[in-house]
């Protein structure tokens, strides 16, 4: 085993331990750790099982087997980064929707408070129909994808 491989295996083992520690302290969700664990485990397995690594390098036409290992590592890292971008996109869509709904709810609440008056619900200031209208939920929207099937895009 070359020194390069030893370094790779030790680094990956340290990474696995760090990931497990993050999961244990609830700072990393399992679903986002799985890809990292697979990548790090791959490096450890191939680093120790050199025959498999040499076979793989041969199949890929790579002269120096450890390079096959680092190619795999790079591909895994790209995969994880892409996955992260997808997650960020989903989160920012959800955040935007939350901000919009919050602002709308705050406006309705202000309006409701103005109608009800400062003494609360004991002394309704507005007519009941208005209060009911304010309290009633929004009309149900057909799910976007079915309503506008050619825009099969958004999942927020």
């Amino acid at each position: 085993m070359t020194r390069l491989l030893i370094v790779g295996v030790i680094t990956s083992a340290a990474l696995i331990i760090a990931i497990l520690a993050l999961i244990r302290t609830r700072r990393l969700q399992e679903r986002y750790a799985i890809l990292w664990l697979i990548a790090a485990s791959g490096v450890v397995v191939f680093g120790l099982w050199t025959a498999a690594l040499e076979g793989l390098a041969d199949a890929l036409g790579i002269a120096y087997p450890p390079n096959a290992l680092f190619l795999l590592g790079a591909l895994f890292a790209i995969g994880v980064l892409l996955h992260t971008s997808v997650v960020i996109t989903r989160l920012s869509n959800q955040t935007q929707t939350l901000a919009q709904r919050l602002a709308m709810a705050e406006e309705r609440l202000r309006e409701l408070e103005e109608r009800v008056g400062p003494d609360g619900l004991d002394e309704p200031g507005g007519d009941e129909a208005t209060v009911e209208k304010v309290l009633r939920g929004a009309p149900q929207m057909t799910r976007g994808r079915r309503r506008f099937p050619r825009l099969a895009r958004s999942r927020d």
Partner: peptide, 22 residues
Amino acid sequence: VRLPFNLGIGGAVQTGYRIAWD
């Protein structure tokens, strides 16, 4: 309707359309 932070013109306008729909 006061958005809690800057969403950009798209997010702001969509808030209006959501109100219009609701």
